[in-house]
Design a binder for these strands. Structure first.
Lengths: 233, 233
DNA sequence: TAGATTGTTAATCGATTAACAATC
DNA sequence: TAGATTGTTAATCGATTAACAATC
């Protein structure tokens, strides 16, 4: 049932989509260092990935290289960028100008990664009609009206879990097609709407359970510096 | 070589570790609503997951239920919490008190999720010796000294990509065993050190490539039926 | 040429899903 | 009891990895 997150779009596996942006980051650096060409082996070394996997990912994104030579760095970068839809930024709105929302409003790199936040919304009257990092904050009430006028397709959700579904509904009713959800709760959306969950607590769960396992193992047989053994099993 | 990130710990698959925290969130809500028992079907409905998968996850976490009855809600919650190491909070330090770092310092739910940030560090003298959301900010220079004294095992990295590896090295040299990395760059760490990458741009890449695909194919039968699966979260 | 590298197909591995007996 | 649910084993599915011919 939860096909959404794992299912391939256009035959592109989700893990591939997740890796493509990291290739962009490496390629940008290599291009700045005047590397005209780059091989899958090089990229794989930078990111600790199997070169074959890199090659398969690149081919899925439509890139082509030359045997022995590799891929032209700049061209490869641009073709991934285009594939991801990052070459020209899309407008987005953010709802929930709390600490996390504020941070995202000030996160300048987004411009380079295909997203431009054009308006923010909050229920707190104290925040409304101010600007945060140059973005105007509107009362939540105005969301439907403004969405209709602005034709924005991306919504960023940084509200508390309790408010998430209600705001989500208001977004989808008014034309939002993709929601980047930072609220730690599952959203129900109409068919066709894309939801990308960013659950910080899930990551934290992985981190702490691995650490717990490592420390547990360290206490019994291995020393702390040997925690690696506990980490692999 | 980055097996550490993908490899199961104690035979627990990474996807399971990622789902366990979401079960906690649902269970907490159900417990508050006085549900004494809960079934995998119920949990699955809340999160759009296959009930069999939920059951398997729970069994991997060591929980047991009773046929027809289900799992005792409170007990199940506590057993997952314990499994994740969230029952008593671990100390952590944060390096990089920029906008994202500041947001994390103010993210109160962390206390409930096993992490307590006891100190922050930054290179900017203007930020040093102040408090952000009640956490003292120290000059980065003091990191080694303080880590040694505090015996902290978790490091949160919210510095720019260029500084990430250097700070990471300072962390691991001084006893950090697990790094929550928000910098958009791959880290090289000694064996046994756990790295959990939180690459916002990877998520953004998935979101925007799916949206691009959906908009590109808008109108064709193919993309509409394809978008259906993308909707479920 | 020789060796590195691409592109692609086949094999492997692991996670999800299905099937089903046990049980309350 | 009947039906829902657990626990577990087997089947399926998909991603990763290996193998290898083509090629610059």
């Amino acid at each position: 049932m939860n096909k959404s997150e794992q299912t391939a779009i256009n035959g592109i596996p989700e893990p591939t989509l997740r890796r493509l942006p990291t290739y962009c980051q490496v390629l940008r650096r290599l291009a700045a260092q005047d590397h005209e060409h780059v091989s899958c082996t090089q990229i794989g070394r930078e990111l600790n990935l199997d070169p074959t996997q890199v090659r398969k990912d690149l081919s899925l994104a439509g890139a082509t290289g030359r045997p022995k030579v590799g891929y032209p760095t700049g061209e490869l970068y641009r073709s991934i960028e285009t594939f991801l839809g990052w070459n020209d930024a899309r407008d987005a709105v953010l709802v929930g100008a709390g600490s996390l929302g504020t941070a995202l409003l000030g996160y300048t790199p987004f411009d380079q990664y295909g997203v431009k936040i054009v308006a923010a919304f909050d229920v707190d009257p104290a925040k409304c009609n101010t600007k945060i990092h140059g973005v105007r904050v509107f009362p939540l009430m105005k969301l439907p009206n403004l969405l209709e006028r602005l034709h924005v397709h991306i919504g960023i959700l940084t509200v508390p879990a309790e408010a998430a579904q209600s705001v989500c509904d208001q977004m989808t009713i008014n034309g939002i097609l993709a929601i980047w959800n930072f609220a730690p709760t599952a959203l129900t959306v109409p068919e066709g709407v894309i939801v990308q969950n960013e659950n910080l607590f899930s990551s934290l769960g992985i981190l702490s359970s691995k650490l717990t396992a490592a420390l547990r193992g360290a206490g019994t047989i291995y020393s702390i510096s040997d925690a690696r053994t506990a980490g692999k099993a």
